[in-house]
Design a protein around this nucleic acid. Structure first.
Length: 267
DNA sequence: AGAATTACCTGAGCGC
DNA sequence: TGCGCTCAGGTAATTC
């Protein structure tokens, strides 16, 4: 499940692989993802050069001279540069074929991904305009978290996963950051102190940064875009023991998401 | 305004 | 073997 680190690693990898290259043609095999892939993409992209690859939250933004190709990987999406594209496999929904014979290939079994074309500033697109600050920039920090949480009677885990308040944090890193910050995920956001918000903002940045750093080495070795290179302290370990106190971890559901924490370490 | 719920989709794993 | 069920979860839309 791509969250910010996985999307950022994808961005870095594709930046190296496709910037400066020209698009020959586009093959759309599954026209209907979460939103329909624009059919006119083939006409719009043929002959364009990819000038840059940027990221906003979990969205990848490709500058294609006359407009922007925006791609969200949803739950199960992979976007890879395929040097020698053979016959596409199952769930390979979109190929952007480049003039050097390689291809940018979107694979997404669950079809929760999104492919958008816009000629405007991509950051003003309706799906991107309302996204909260990037967690790894000065726009985000304990003060911001404290301020936006004052009026929110919602579990703090749901608050940090709310894309309108904070970009890029999904279920995995929300679980991990709260464990590191020693804060229970079901605490009401408005009950957090300034000091707790400072701590949580810091651990959110830590887990994202570490995942990007560790992921990059992992990915180079595997020559693929791997998800979740980190070894997790709580995520996916609902039946296990706390790595800090050795007590039994607890698993609950918040907003229909699996949530794992240690009630001894997290208050 | 903010909170809660639902829909979208497929593969894996499980009990029977 | 296969059926039916649950779970995985990002996000927009809808409802309260």
């Amino acid at each position: 499940m791509p969250e910010l680190p996985e999307v950022e690693l994808t961005r870095r990898s594709l930046e190296r692989a496709v910037v400066g290259k020209s698009i020959e043609r586009v093959e759309i095999r599954a026209p209907k993802l979460r939103l329909p892939i624009p059919a006119e993409l083939a006409t719009l992209l043929a002959g364009r050069t990819i000038r840059s690859v940027a990221r906003r939250g979990k969205y990848l933004l490709f500058d294609c001279e006359t407009g922007w190709l925006i791609i969200h990987l949803g739950m199960t999406g992979f976007l890879r540069h395929i040097p020698d594209p053979a016959l596409p496999g199952k769930h390979d929904h979109l190929d952007v074929r480049l003039t050097d014979g390689s291809a940018l290939r979107l694979h997404d079994s669950r079809k929760f991904g999104t492919v958008i074309w816009t000629t405007d500033d991509p950051l003003t697109h309706p799906l991107l305009a309302g996204i909260g600050p990037e967690p790894l920039t000065p726009a985000f920090g304990g003060d911001y978290l404290f301020r936006v949480s004052r009026s929110r009677r919602v579990a703090v885990k749901l608050l940090i996963m709310n894309a309108a308040l904070l970009a890029g944090v999904g279920n995995i890193y929300a679980n991990e950051a709260l464990f590191r910050a020693a804060i229970r995920p079901d605490r009401l956001a408005c009950s957090l102190t300034q000091e707790e918000c400072d701590r949580l903002a810091l651990t959110i940045q830590e887990v994202l940064r570490e995942s990007i750093e560790q992921g990059s080495t992992y990915r180079v070795a595997e020559e693929t875009t791997a998800y979740h290179p980190l070894e997790f302290a709580v995520y996916g370990r609902g039946k296990g023991l706390c790595t800090r106190c050795n007590g039994a971890l607890e698993e609950i559901r918040l907003g229909n998401r699996s949530t794992v924490f240690c009630s001894r370490c997290q208050k």
